[in-house]
Design a binder for these strands. Structure first.
Lengths: 355, 355
DNA sequence: CTGAAAGCGCTAACAA
DNA sequence: TTGTTAGCGCTTTCAG
């Protein structure tokens, strides 16, 4: 166990010292430089020496210490990805895509979830900066721009994805929520709904420009239609969970409000609404039409068959990651400001109305 | 911009150098030691000096370089968590819980997904070892024990969670799948099913002892029952996706096989089966009973109402993380081998049979 | 209360 | 083809 040379020198908390280049060098009777270069392909080391070194490295279970390498190199080739909720599969999609692209380009991605808390967000970003990330992809949850100021003054390359807060004016790749709102409400109108409820998620997302843009867009559709005939649109503060949709349905019942068209900010909320309505004896797609957002994998089941708006999160993540790495490598000067157009997937929850 | 001292010395790929302790020391007219100590609480630095240092640090947007700190300290206080699929919410639960516990104990968690690929798994673990993790939590996907050998010979503290492969004999906290199988099949029997199909996921999970243990357990229940009366259990190779369940239903139809009780390895597969059966005119909970595993959040909806086996993944992750850190800190000598008992949640998909 | 010096593991420049 | 030296940013002696 020759490589445990510093065992006595310093007692670490874990029971043994990892082998280093120094250990290999000593055993192989070569310099540390030779060892270091033996791990690279195009270098000057003779095959014989390299083989000897590699064998010993394997023997000792040697793994290069990235802390040391990064410190020496002055860079980490690592980017950070801040998501809101790791339990939500579409964040998973984004992270997966990002990691894949980064890998192809020689970068590593570290990610962490804020759980919609501004405090967590601040903590995460701080830690990432300490970890010397070279760029950051952000799903903001902070309602104020205080975290963003940290990003700005750190001077780190960054990009916002999914949806952006009102205060943000940096580069972004987000989904076109105004268009999503248009798609949904126009569809409800087209199939005959004249009494529409929009269940937004102000509580969770109220400070995001997307929500406001969506409302404006919907109001706009509404106004252009209302010229021709009488139609009603009400907005409700709901949420993004099954329970949110159920709660909002109950509130409407209490308030004696009835709608023939419902648009929810995500599929789970829509499923919650459908569930509450069903318990009340109403048939989705027959007594009312309903549209969600996210195209959850279960929405396609016949038992649910929920019309939904599909957003290409992988595309968003791909563009963002490539952009970020381009910026890091000075291959990109132009600030990106991109909206991805979503797609409407029509299912039974809104198709029975059609004639 | 005094801290850009090395701007000319070395041209980094990113446009500017981050400030270091050296920069702060120079501006504050103190030693690097003083700066370093100013960031710690219990030390010898005068309040005046500390304030000066802290102000300058803030001014320069200073973030300590963790690579340097870790290198110097000889440890990273970081653990790795290898999951299989980031899009599956229950891995999210585990990661979230682990991160929270680690944080409380002063550790950081880095996680990565293998996507059920042994090759990815190997790559991830290798990278984590280079990143100098001090311990690792594993959801294995490799069918052979080659990756585990890397772990073993690296000598790193480790623990397996969720489910363990046959070849693995190290510490683990997994769910009691034999008991889960017992719960499910016993329940189906109790409500009157005498013709039961088990849709397992050998393709995805065949090399895991849990699957085998579950089969044994089910066979055991089966044998003890069959003494008293005629009852049939068939096993199918299905999968973990909605499409798996649908496909298996179709296969059964083709083979002219009919069952009154179905047990699937997860809820998605069960939903797929229900979906295919519904299209065929069969009513779940009426024409047949069905039980899943995982207690997906949508399983509770009336439209689905799927009986399921709930596994406390947070508990698993909590125990594993605490154990791992205990081992790292030499507070734990005993190898942990723990099974968590799951719970049966009965819903309509299997309750109509009851009288 | 403060500073000088050494060294964590690695690699790039420079010598041989 | 190989070795020597220096230094990345930080912290920990040890000496003032």
């Amino acid at each position: 166990m020759g490589f445990m040379r510093s065992q006595e020198k310093k007692q670490k908390i874990n029971s043994f010292q990892k082998p280093t280049i120094k250990d290999i060098a000593r055993i192989a009777n070569v310099s540390e430089t030779t060892v270091s270069l033996s791990f690279k392909n195009n270098s000057r080391i003779s095959d014989k020496t390299r083989q000897k070194v590699l064998n010993i490295a394997k023997e000792l279970n040697y793994f290069p210490n990235l802390s040391a390498r990064d410190l020496r190199a002055g860079r980490t080739k690592t980017i950070g990805f801040v998501i809101n909720d790791i339990k939500n599969p579409f964040y998973g999609s984004m992270v997966r895509t990002s990691e894949q692209i980064a890998l192809e380009r020689g970068y590593e991605v570290i990610f962490s979830e804020s759980q919609w808390s501004g405090k967590n967000e601040k903590f995460i970003i701080n830690r990432m900066l300490q970890n010397q990330i070279e760029g950051i992809i952000l799903c903001f949850s902070e309602k104020t721009e205080s975290t963003y100021k940290t990003i700005l003054s750190s001077g780190i390359p960054h990009i916002v994805v999914d949806t952006k807060p009102d205060y943000y004016h940096g580069p972004y790749v987000i989904n076109d929520s105004a268009f999503a709102g248009y798609l949904a409400v126009k569809h409800l109108y087209d199939i005959g709904c004249r009494n529409i409820a929009v269940l937004n998620a102000k509580e969770d997302l109220g400070y995001f420009s997307s929500v406001n843009e969506m409302e404006h867009s919907i109001s706009h559709v509404f106004n252009s239609i209302t010229q021709k005939e009488r139609i009603q649109i009400d907005f409700y503060d709901s949420g993004l969970k099954i329970s949110s949709g159920m709660k909002t349905y109950d509130e409407m019942q209490k308030a004696q409000k009835f709608y023939d068209g419902i648009f929810c900010m995500n599929d789970l909320c829509a499923m919650g609404y459908m569930n509450a309505a069903l318990r009340d004896g109403l048939q989705p797609g027959k007594d009312f039409a309903i549209v969600g957002v996210d195209d959850n994998e279960v929405s396609d089941l016949d038992m649910i068959s929920l019309t939904s708006i599909n957003i290409d999160y992988e595309e968003i993540s791909k563009i963002a990651t490539n952009y970020l790495i381009d910026v890091i490598e000075n291959k990109q000067e132009q600030k990106i400001e991109k909206m991805i157009r979503p797609e409407l997937i029509i299912r039974n929850s809104s198709s029975f109305f059609q004639t």
